[in-house]
Simulated assay, not measured.
Amino acid sequence: MIELKGVRKTYGQEVSIGPVDLQIPAGGVTALVGPNGAGKSTLLTVVGRLLGADAGTVEVAGYDVARTPSRDLARIVSILRQENHFVTRLTVRQLVAFGRFPHSRGRLTTADEEAVSRAVDFLDLTGLQDRYLDQLSGGQRQRAHVAMVLCQETEYVLLDEPLNNLDVKHSVQMMQHLRRAADELGRTVVVVLHDINFAGHYADRICAVKDGRVVEFGPPEQILTGEVLSRVFDTPVTCLPGPRGPIAVYY
Rank of each mutant, 00 (worst) to 15 (best):
Q176F: 13
Y156D: 10
A199N: 13
D160E: 14
H177N: 03
P162R: 04
V192K: 09
A203Q: 14
V168L: 15
V190R: 11
E153I: 05
V190D: 07
L193V: 00
L193N: 03
L158F: 13
T188G: 00
E155T: 10
Q176K: 15
D183S: 06
D195N: 07
V191T: 10
E161M: 01
V190L: 05
V189S: 06
V172E: 13
H194T: 03
H194L: 04
Y202R: 01
D160K: 09
V172P: 09
K169H: 15
M175V: 02
R179V: 00
A199Y: 13
M174Y: 10
N165C: 04
H177F: 10
F198R: 04
M174P: 13
Q176G: 10
Q152Y: 14
H177C: 02
L178H: 06
K169R: 15
L193W: 03
H177I: 13
T188N: 05
T154P: 02
N197T: 05
A203V: 15
L163S: 15
K169T: 15
L178I: 05
R180V: 10
H170G: 00
P162Q: 11
K169I: 13
L150D: 04
G200H: 15
Q173L: 11
N164I: 09
L185P: 01
L178G: 02
H177L: 13
R187I: 03
L193T: 08
L185H: 01
M175A: 03
H177D: 04
E161R: 10
E184L: 09
A182E: 08
A182F: 08
V157H: 07
V189F: 08
H170W: 03
S171N: 04
H170C: 01
E184A: 10
V191I: 10
A182I: 11
V168T: 08
D167N: 12
R187L: 01
